[in-house]
Amino acid sequence: MGRRRGTTMIKALLLDLGDTLIDTHKTPPAPFPGVEDALGVLKTLETADHKPLVMCLVSDFTMPEPRTPEAIAAAFADYLRELDKTHLRRFFEPVDERVTLSTHAGQRKPAAIVFKMALERAKVHGTLRNTLLITENAEHIRVCRDELHMKTLQFGVDFTAWSEAPKLISQTIGADA
């Protein structure tokens, strides 16, 4: 968790997809149990100042070379097709605002520019300190928490079942449970 709990208002929830929301070890990959219900609840959460919590996906999906506008658009279209297969897209509409790939920023997570690009695309007026990142990746958690000063929750460590997530996230962002 972040260092200064309660002093910085969380405005955005950034979520990783693979191995956080979906089990990539299944064929085909599918959401972990409880993910759809949890996302439904999270979509209704408000920040401490009673504004809607902005919920976004941030993914390292692919980094085309060369990184042309056409290649970025094609990678994004491919990602959206994969997202459609999981039936989770509805939680991240409009996708042009709520889904950010590393290729949009030209670097992979946990580079700060990737998360800043996600906030920019989602029209969130805030800094990385105003975000909560959820991922299973321990190195991303460490960098985001210790170097970028983001709030973090690690799936598989801070919580192991998505049924637990809404209450924990609500407490972390300072919203009413």
Rank of each mutant, 00 (worst) to 15 (best):
170 S>M: 02
168 L>W: 07
145 R>C: 02
154 Q>C: 15
25 H>L: 13
101 L>D: 13
49 D>F: 01
12 A>C: 08
166 P>T: 05
95 V>Q: 13
146 D>Y: 01
172 T>V: 10
52 P>N: 13
167 K>V: 12
138 A>C: 04
84 D>M: 07
158 D>L: 06
27 T>C: 10
35 V>F: 03
12 A>I: 00
43 K>C: 07
121 R>A: 06
154 Q>N: 08
43 K>N: 15
94 P>M: 12
129 R>C: 09
132 L>R: 05
54 V>L: 05
37 D>V: 05
6 G>L: 02
57 L>D: 09
23 D>Q: 07
176 D>K: 09
159 F>T: 02
145 R>H: 12
152 T>E: 10
126 G>A: 03
80 L>H: 06
177 A>L: 11
111 A>K: 10
56 C>N: 14
36 E>A: 13
75 A>L: 06
135 T>E: 07
176 D>P: 02
31 P>L: 12
62 T>P: 00
128 L>I: 04
131 T>D: 03
128 L>C: 03
168 L>A: 05
123 K>D: 10
126 G>T: 02
3 R>I: 08
173 I>A: 05
160 T>N: 13
25 H>I: 01
19 D>A: 07
48 A>G: 08
100 T>C: 14
98 R>Y: 12
64 P>Q: 11
51 K>W: 01
163 S>R: 14
176 D>T: 11
62 T>W: 08
107 Q>G: 00
45 L>I: 07
32 F>V: 04
172 T>I: 03
172 T>L: 14
162 W>L: 06
87 H>T: 09
173 I>D: 03
121 R>P: 03
153 L>Y: 10
143 V>Q: 04
117 M>H: 13
2 G>M: 07
54 V>P: 00
23 D>F: 11
22 I>T: 15
5 R>P: 02
71 A>F: 10
137 N>I: 06
33 P>K: 09
69 P>N: 11
175 A>I: 03
38 A>P: 04
171 Q>A: 14
114 V>H: 02
35 V>A: 11
129 R>E: 15
2 G>E: 09
46 E>H: 14
65 E>N: 08
32 F>I: 04
78 D>F: 02
1 M>W: 02
25 H>N: 15
100 T>G: 05
128 L>R: 03
38 A>S: 14
123 K>N: 14
117 M>L: 14
116 K>W: 02
17 L>V: 12
23 D>L: 04
174 G>W: 04
88 L>V: 10
126 G>Q: 09
159 F>K: 02
55 M>Y: 00
17 L>T: 01
46 E>Q: 13
103 T>D: 14
87 H>R: 15
103 T>G: 00
159 F>M: 03
50 H>Q: 14
86 T>K: 07
117 M>A: 13
3 R>M: 12
7 T>E: 11
3 R>C: 04
46 E>I: 03
172 T>Q: 09
69 P>S: 13
69 P>V: 09
21 L>R: 08
50 H>F: 01
70 E>F: 07
169 I>S: 01
107 Q>I: 01
63 M>C: 05
100 T>D: 10
15 L>D: 11
154 Q>V: 07
1 M>S: 10
11 K>D: 01
148 L>Y: 05
130 N>F: 00
162 W>S: 06
13 L>Y: 05
66 P>N: 11
67 R>A: 11
